[in-house]
Lab assay of single mutants.
Amino acid sequence: QAPETKIVDKSRVACDGGEGALGHPRVWLQIPEDTGWVECPYCDCKYVLKGSKADAL
C-alpha cells in the first residue's frame, strides 16, 4: 500500500507510525523551507507543509 500523505500546519512534526504499539519509535521531523515536505525514515509517511510550494502540487 502507498505511504500516507499528511498536510500539516507546522514545519516540525512528530511521527510514531500512528498505530500505537504497532507503530515505530517517535521521531521529530523538520520540514525544509526549500522543499516544503519531509518523509518519515521509518514508515515513509510524507508530511507536506500547508501553503508551501509542495502543497500546491
Results as ranks from 00 to 15, higher is better:
residue 1 Q to W: 14
residue 1 Q to A: 10
residue 1 Q to P: 11
residue 1 Q to R: 13
residue 1 Q to F: 13
residue 1 Q to C: 15
residue 1 Q to K: 13
residue 1 Q to T: 13
residue 2 A to F: 13
residue 2 A to L: 14
residue 2 A to G: 12
residue 2 A to D: 09
residue 2 A to I: 12
residue 2 A to C: 15
residue 2 A to M: 14
residue 3 P to C: 15
residue 3 P to H: 15
residue 3 P to L: 10
residue 3 P to N: 10
residue 3 P to I: 10
residue 3 P to Y: 11
residue 4 E to Q: 15
residue 4 E to Y: 14
residue 4 E to F: 14
residue 4 E to G: 15
residue 4 E to L: 15
residue 4 E to P: 13
residue 4 E to D: 13
residue 5 T to A: 12
residue 5 T to I: 14
residue 5 T to F: 15
residue 5 T to S: 08
residue 5 T to N: 05
residue 5 T to K: 07
residue 5 T to Y: 15
residue 6 K to R: 12
residue 6 K to D: 03
residue 6 K to Q: 09
residue 6 K to G: 04
residue 6 K to T: 11
residue 6 K to I: 14
residue 6 K to Y: 06
residue 7 I to S: 03
residue 7 I to D: 01
residue 7 I to A: 05
residue 7 I to P: 03
residue 8 V to F: 01
residue 8 V to G: 01
residue 8 V to A: 03
residue 8 V to N: 02
residue 8 V to D: 02
residue 9 D to G: 06
residue 9 D to C: 12
residue 9 D to N: 11
residue 9 D to H: 10
residue 9 D to T: 14
residue 10 K to I: 10
residue 10 K to L: 08
residue 10 K to A: 09
residue 10 K to R: 10
residue 10 K to F: 13
residue 10 K to Y: 12
residue 11 S to K: 09
residue 11 S to G: 06
residue 11 S to R: 12
residue 11 S to T: 12
residue 11 S to N: 09
residue 11 S to C: 10
residue 11 S to M: 11
residue 12 R to C: 14
residue 12 R to E: 11
residue 12 R to L: 14
residue 12 R to D: 09
residue 12 R to W: 14
residue 12 R to H: 07
residue 12 R to Y: 12
residue 13 V to R: 01
residue 13 V to D: 01
residue 13 V to A: 01
residue 13 V to T: 01
residue 13 V to G: 02
residue 13 V to S: 03
residue 13 V to Y: 01
residue 13 V to K: 03
residue 13 V to L: 06
residue 14 A to G: 03
residue 14 A to I: 08
residue 14 A to E: 08
residue 14 A to K: 08
residue 14 A to V: 07
residue 15 C to R: 00
residue 15 C to T: 00
residue 15 C to N: 00
residue 15 C to H: 00
residue 15 C to I: 00
residue 15 C to E: 00
residue 16 D to L: 06
residue 16 D to E: 12
residue 16 D to V: 11
residue 16 D to Y: 10
residue 16 D to R: 06
residue 16 D to A: 09
residue 17 G to Q: 03
residue 17 G to S: 04
residue 17 G to E: 03
residue 17 G to R: 01
residue 17 G to T: 02
residue 17 G to V: 04
residue 17 G to H: 02
residue 17 G to K: 02
residue 17 G to L: 01
residue 18 G to D: 04
residue 18 G to Y: 07
residue 18 G to A: 06
residue 18 G to W: 06
residue 18 G to R: 09
residue 18 G to C: 15
residue 18 G to F: 07
residue 18 G to I: 05
residue 18 G to T: 03
residue 19 E to K: 12
residue 19 E to H: 04
residue 19 E to C: 15
residue 19 E to T: 08
residue 19 E to L: 12
residue 19 E to M: 08
residue 19 E to G: 15
residue 20 G to E: 06
residue 20 G to W: 03
residue 20 G to Q: 05
residue 20 G to Y: 01
residue 20 G to R: 02
residue 20 G to P: 03
residue 20 G to D: 04
residue 20 G to A: 06
residue 20 G to F: 05
residue 21 A to G: 08
residue 21 A to C: 00
residue 21 A to E: 12
residue 21 A to W: 07
residue 21 A to V: 11
residue 21 A to P: 12
residue 22 L to E: 05
residue 22 L to K: 14
residue 22 L to T: 10
residue 22 L to M: 14
residue 22 L to Y: 10
residue 22 L to G: 09
residue 22 L to D: 08
residue 22 L to W: 08
residue 22 L to V: 07
residue 23 G to P: 07
residue 23 G to H: 08
residue 23 G to N: 06
residue 23 G to C: 00
residue 23 G to M: 09
residue 23 G to Q: 12
residue 24 H to T: 05
residue 24 H to G: 04
residue 24 H to S: 03
residue 24 H to V: 03
residue 25 P to I: 11
residue 25 P to R: 07
residue 25 P to D: 10
residue 25 P to E: 11
residue 25 P to C: 09
residue 26 R to D: 07
residue 26 R to G: 03
residue 26 R to H: 06
residue 26 R to E: 07
residue 26 R to F: 05
residue 26 R to I: 09
residue 26 R to N: 06
residue 26 R to Y: 06
residue 27 V to I: 11
residue 27 V to S: 02
residue 27 V to F: 05
residue 27 V to Q: 02
residue 27 V to L: 06
residue 28 W to S: 06
residue 28 W to V: 08
residue 28 W to N: 06
residue 28 W to M: 06
residue 28 W to I: 10
residue 28 W to K: 06
residue 28 W to Q: 09
residue 29 L to I: 05
residue 29 L to G: 02
residue 29 L to A: 01
residue 29 L to H: 04
residue 29 L to Y: 02
residue 29 L to M: 01
residue 29 L to T: 02
residue 29 L to W: 03
residue 29 L to D: 02
residue 30 Q to C: 13
residue 30 Q to T: 13
residue 30 Q to P: 05
residue 30 Q to G: 03
residue 30 Q to S: 10
residue 30 Q to I: 13
residue 30 Q to R: 07
residue 31 I to A: 02
residue 31 I to Y: 03
residue 31 I to W: 04
residue 31 I to V: 01
residue 31 I to P: 04
residue 31 I to C: 08
residue 31 I to D: 04
residue 31 I to E: 03
residue 32 P to M: 05
residue 32 P to E: 07
residue 32 P to A: 06
residue 32 P to D: 11
residue 32 P to R: 03
residue 33 E to Q: 10
residue 33 E to C: 11
residue 33 E to N: 06
residue 33 E to V: 10
residue 34 D to V: 05
residue 34 D to A: 07
residue 34 D to F: 05
residue 34 D to C: 09
residue 34 D to G: 05
residue 34 D to T: 07
residue 34 D to W: 07
residue 35 T to Y: 06
residue 35 T to M: 08
residue 35 T to P: 10
residue 36 G to I: 03
residue 36 G to V: 04
residue 36 G to H: 01
residue 36 G to P: 02
residue 36 G to N: 02
residue 37 W to Q: 03
residue 37 W to L: 03
residue 37 W to M: 07
residue 37 W to E: 04
residue 37 W to Y: 13
residue 38 V to P: 03
residue 38 V to G: 01
residue 38 V to D: 01
residue 38 V to N: 03
residue 38 V to S: 01
residue 38 V to R: 01
residue 39 E to S: 11
residue 39 E to A: 13
residue 39 E to V: 14
residue 39 E to T: 12
residue 39 E to C: 04
residue 39 E to M: 14
residue 39 E to D: 09
residue 39 E to N: 10
residue 40 C to K: 09
residue 40 C to E: 08
residue 40 C to S: 10
residue 40 C to F: 13
residue 41 P to D: 03
residue 41 P to L: 03
residue 41 P to C: 10
residue 41 P to H: 07
residue 41 P to T: 04
residue 41 P to N: 03
residue 41 P to A: 04
residue 42 Y to A: 09
residue 42 Y to G: 02
residue 42 Y to C: 13
residue 42 Y to P: 06
residue 42 Y to Q: 10
residue 43 C to M: 02
residue 43 C to N: 00
residue 43 C to D: 00
residue 43 C to Y: 03
residue 43 C to H: 01
residue 44 D to E: 11
residue 44 D to C: 14
residue 44 D to H: 15
residue 44 D to T: 14
residue 44 D to A: 15
residue 44 D to W: 14
residue 44 D to M: 15
residue 45 C to N: 15
residue 45 C to L: 15
residue 45 C to T: 15
residue 45 C to Q: 15
residue 45 C to M: 15
residue 45 C to E: 00
residue 45 C to R: 15
residue 45 C to A: 15
residue 45 C to V: 15
residue 45 C to D: 00
residue 46 K to Q: 03
residue 46 K to S: 04
residue 46 K to E: 13
residue 46 K to G: 04
residue 46 K to F: 04
residue 46 K to N: 09
residue 47 Y to G: 14
residue 47 Y to I: 11
residue 47 Y to A: 08
residue 47 Y to S: 07
residue 47 Y to F: 15
residue 47 Y to N: 13
residue 48 V to N: 01
residue 48 V to E: 13
residue 48 V to M: 05
residue 49 L to D: 15
residue 49 L to T: 14
residue 50 K to E: 14
residue 50 K to S: 11
residue 50 K to L: 07
residue 50 K to M: 10
residue 50 K to R: 14
residue 50 K to P: 11
residue 51 G to S: 03
residue 51 G to N: 03
residue 51 G to L: 00
residue 51 G to R: 00
residue 51 G to D: 10
residue 51 G to K: 00
residue 52 S to L: 01
residue 52 S to H: 04
residue 52 S to M: 01
residue 52 S to K: 01
residue 52 S to G: 12
residue 52 S to I: 04
residue 52 S to F: 01
residue 52 S to N: 03
residue 52 S to W: 00
residue 53 K to S: 07
residue 53 K to N: 06
residue 53 K to L: 12
residue 53 K to Q: 12
residue 54 A to Q: 06
residue 54 A to C: 14
residue 54 A to V: 05
residue 54 A to K: 03
residue 54 A to M: 03
residue 54 A to H: 05
residue 54 A to E: 08
residue 55 D to M: 00
residue 55 D to L: 00
residue 55 D to C: 08
residue 55 D to W: 00
residue 55 D to P: 04
residue 55 D to H: 00
residue 55 D to G: 02
residue 55 D to N: 00
residue 56 A to W: 14
residue 56 A to P: 14
residue 56 A to C: 14
residue 56 A to H: 13
residue 56 A to S: 10
residue 57 L to A: 13
residue 57 L to G: 13
residue 57 L to S: 14
residue 57 L to C: 15
residue 57 L to E: 12
residue 57 L to Y: 04
residue 57 L to R: 11
